[in-house]
């Protein structure tokens, strides 16, 4: 069953058309990695799926619900979609535990005890139990990003969107965050991931999508995309990545 379907999605900022008709389907338990140069539309696409940006045209369907239909309660829909940002975006005025329990308590109306039990279980699982009472500024970038992932997971989403979650991290901290994502994938979490980490994408993705100038230029298995890309644009992009020593 399809977890996420995009049909002919268009999005412009002013005169610049960032998404020029995207068609994409992600099935349940599938991990799809989006690769492509900066400005190719990866982040915008993820923000559109979460309705942080309204789309100009096209349909977005999550599970059996069309987000782009009229009269949809975006707050209800968003609870089913977790998003993790490049810059973590933790709430700096709240302790780690409160960061995680805020939305379950206020949006899902869970009692505090239940929300905290849920949060502590997740913190435990990702080795962050001792950070529960710290403010985010005290944590390393890798720890902050793991907390951000836990915060999204605490809503028990059907679908996770990851927007270049390792791009702001020091190289030695990337592995711990990728480890968390791997674990999610192995548990069958449906994920749409925008990433610059090619070897990670190759390793974790069921399917890789190459985004170029607002369209999906090519898609296929990691093997097809990374070893035998068909489109000249994909070949060029991967060539540059290899020259930069990142594949």
């Amino acid at each position: 069953m399809s977890a996420l379907t995009l049909q002919d999605v268009h999005k412009s900022f002013g005169k610049v058309e960032v998404l020029k008709g995207i068609d994409l389907a992600v099935v349940e338990h599938e991990v799809v990695c989006m690769i492509g140069a900066s400005g190719s539309g990866k982040s915008t696409l993820l923000r559109c799926v979460n309705l942080l940006e309204p789309v100009d045209r096209g349909r977005i369907v999550v599970g059996d619900q069309e987000l782009t239909a009229r009269g949809v309660d975006v707050n209800v829909v968003r609870r089913r979609i977790g998003i993790v940002f490049q810059a973590y975006n933790l709430f700096p005025h709240m302790r780690v535990l409160d960061n995680i329990t805020l939305a379950p308590r206020k949006a899902l109306k869970l009692p505090r005890a239940e929300a905290e039990a849920r949060a502590l279980e997740l913190l435990e699982r990702f080795g962050l139990s001792d950070k529960r009472d710290d403010y985010p500024d005290r944590l390393s970038g890798g720890q902050q990003q793991r907390v951000a992932i836990v915060r999204a997971l605490a809503m028990r989403p059907d679908l996770m969107l990851l927007d270049e979650v390792t791009s702001a991290l020091d190289p030695e901290l990337v592995a711990e965050v990728l480890g968390v994502i791997r674990e999610l994938a192995s548990e069958g979490m449906t994920m749409l991931i925008a990433t610059h980490e090619m070897s990670f994408a190759r390793d974790i993705a069921d399917r890789v999508v190459f985004l170029d100038e607002g369209v999906i230029r090519e898609e296929g298995t990691p093997e097809e995309i990374f070893s035998a890309p068909k489109e000249p644009r994909t070949q060029q992009f991967l060539q540059r990545i290899i020259e930069a020593g990142r594949l």
């Binding site: 923000r47 942080l52 979609i81 940002f85 810059a87 975006n89 939305a103 206020k106 949006a107 915060r151």
Partner: peptide, 16 residues
């Protein structure tokens, strides 16, 4: 604005 984006993306309403 990224703070509001983070809050809204978790399903909180604008007043929340």
């Amino acid at each position: 604005p990224s703070q509001e984006a983070a809050a809204r993306s978790l399903g909180l309403t604008r007043p929340q």
